[in-house]
């Protein structure tokens, strides 16, 4: 049994310290998800807190079929759907036809140092994406979920997820290139 499973089991028994350890482990990723979608930090914090409160209240329903983090992101995403009514509609409107050719491999780690400035530009570029693409990009590249996991979290068809991420990445690349060319 992994350390996380032990913590979940203890938390299910009412151990708040065990749940606090889980919160500690996942808080940054849940907050990033809400922070990238919502217009201000306070709202993002409130929604991230609400995610953990609901997780605690519904912990008995978590059976362990999926990963705990996937379950958490699903709660957070559903809260975002409630808060941003257009989000799910926009995601569902993504045409899955041009999703071929995407690899599900985790991006490889490069040792090459990249300037912090470029990372800041990428972060800014993500914030300019439509909400639906922002959600997909954060789940894929910050929270490092697989396409299948993203489909579970967002309750979308796999093809829609792949297409959405493909388009979001293309949009990001175009924006970064135009930013670098203009310098």
């Amino acid at each position: 049994m992994t350390a996380e499973k032990i913590l979940i089991k203890r938390a299910k028994g009412g151990d708040t310290r065990a749940f606090e350890a889980l919160v500690n482990h996942h808080a940054r990723y849940v907050f990033t998800l809400t922070n990238r979608l919502l217009p201000n930090t306070q709202e993002a914090e409130d929604l991230a807190q609400e995610t953990f409160i609901r997780a605690w209240q519904n912990l008995a329903k978590f059976r362990g079929d999926a990963q705990f983090r996937t379950w958490l992101y699903r709660i957070a995403t559903n809260l975002c759907y409630n808060r941003l009514p257009n989000l799910k509609r926009d995601l569902a409107a993504v045409d899955p036809d041009d999703s071929v050719g995407l690899s599900d491999q985790t991006p490889r780690i490069e040792t090459q140092m990249i300037r912090n400035e470029a990372v800041v530009e990428l972060s800014d570029a993500i914030n300019t994406l439509p909400e639906s693409y922002r959600l997909l990009i954060v789940l894929r590249h910050v929270n490092e979920l697989s396409y299948q996991e993203i489909a579970q979290v967002t309750d979308l068809p796999l093809g829609t997820v792949k297409t959405g991420i493909f388009r979001a990445r293309k949009m990001l690349k175009d924006r970064l290139e135009s930013a670098w060319v203009s310098k």
């Binding site: 606090e20 940054r28 990033t32 991006p107 490069e110 910050v142 970064l176």
Partner: peptide
């Protein structure tokens, strides 16, 4: 290049006292 940038990006910092 984009993947390398994503590797550097990482999650956002938590607000103080969040936990």
């Amino acid at each position: 290049q984009l993947n390398q940038l994503f590797e550097q990006l990482g999650p956002d910092a938590l607000p103080a006292g969040f936990i």
